[in-house]
Design a protein around this nucleic acid. Structure first.
Lengths: 208, 208
DNA sequence: TTTTTGTTTAACAATTTTGTTAGTGCAAAT
DNA sequence: ATTTGCACTAACAAAATTGTTAAACAAAAA
């Protein structure tokens, strides 16, 4: 079998990911990671040398996928603007529902670590400088032709990301509510997705 | 003077609040707190015995005020429903703009600490059991008389809190944007507040 | 078979972080 | 003036956490 003799290096990485996502860098302990992976903690240092090393491997990857999860959908240029925005928001939500613990982890670690904050700021520069003005232009065109309400694209993005991300950040707090009002957690996700799209539509389109 | 000889017990508490808000429970170190307060770290233990003790004093207070910052405004019963919702959202936003680092701190600590998660769940029970159904009833009345769009009050609450809170959680990431598009951070806050109210209005009211 | 190479373990070491204590000084109460 | 109680310090102790090393082991190469 392939899965049985799975190499320890990988096992450690997976265990580390779980611990870091649950407890953050400071909260996660190398010995808990080793224990979860079923290896001695010397092995962790053998493969990754330091806790910080191991952590960076994970954070960088997660930051990258989280960032592209919301930027890529809006770059699908062969869809008309409004479709692109709405489908983009949906795709973003779908990604989050498959990775519900990602945003809290990434946001936290980025914000508490100055180097990481600088890194993400530099990555967003591209978005700020090129995509945002071009999308704003498209928006303004649609506004002129009376298709949508006046809006800053920046504010629209913040609206979409807020609506999509925040419920996942506080998901554990919402659980009693979800249990009471929905049969499955998945049903809550579907309802939230529909609600978000509806809210964005209403904010954007005339005569909704 | 009163402020000069301010007692150390209080000074430590203030320093602790800053460190905990910045770095979280695990990230904050008792010696950094002592250093920030300008006292030996023995004093910290003298007054508060343990780090956890000191932390709990802060977290409990912060959790309480954060919770009431969004619950109280909706309980102002002498306003008609729609006014109450809109003024409530505004008040909630205003509170956050005065306490921008509170939500990330509280949410994190609550979610990573099972006892705290249980505590907040129990506090929300009241809201879930009594306020929510009664507000839902009011909503349904307004829907029937054709004043507003159909909506679950639960979803509306999640919308409002998401729109209000999330931008503050990621504030440091947004800073380059804010600097570029707004003269003052305060101007960004004003714009976001207006945007949130507008979005909620559009989601709620007919013919906007 | 012997060597080489990389993997693994257990025990140890270093560092960081939290918590304690004995004793000093000082102010108010007796 | 002496005692009592509280604030305070410096040095110490304990615990937790991270990191290292020497030696055993196993698999593949020579």
């Amino acid at each position: 079998m392939d899965t049985d003799i799975q190499n320890k290096e990988q096992t450690i990485l997976i265990a580390a990911e779980e611990e870091f996502l649950l407890y953050g860098y400071d909260g996660a302990k190398t010995m808990s990671i080793a224990k979860r992976a079923g290896v001695t903690h010397a092995m962790l240092h053998y493969y990754y040398r330091t806790k910080l090393n191991l952590f960076n491997k994970i954070l960088e990857e997660k930051m990258t996928i989280l960032l592209s999860s919301f930027m890529n959908p809006f770059m699908n240029n062969d869809l008309p603007l409004i479709e692109r925005i709405l489908k983009g928001a949906e795709a973003h939500f779908d990604f989050l529902s498959k990775n519900p613990r990602l945003p809290r982890f990434v946001v936290n670690e980025i914000i508490t670590k100055p180097e990481m904050l600088d890194l993400i700021k530099s990555r967003l520069q591209t978005f700020y400088q090129y995509m945002l003005p071009s999308l704003q232009y498209e928006i303004d065109e649609q506004v002129k032709s009376g298709k949508i309400h006046k809006i800053d694209f920046l504010n629209l993005i913040v609206d979409i990301v807020s609506l999509n991300v925040f419920p996942f950040i506080v998901l554990p707090i919402l659980e009693p509510l979800i249990d009471k009002h929905y049969k499955e957690k998945q049903a809550f996700f579907e309802a939230r997705k529909a609600e978000n799209i509806k809210t964005i539509k209403m904010r954007l389109l005339l005569n909704q």
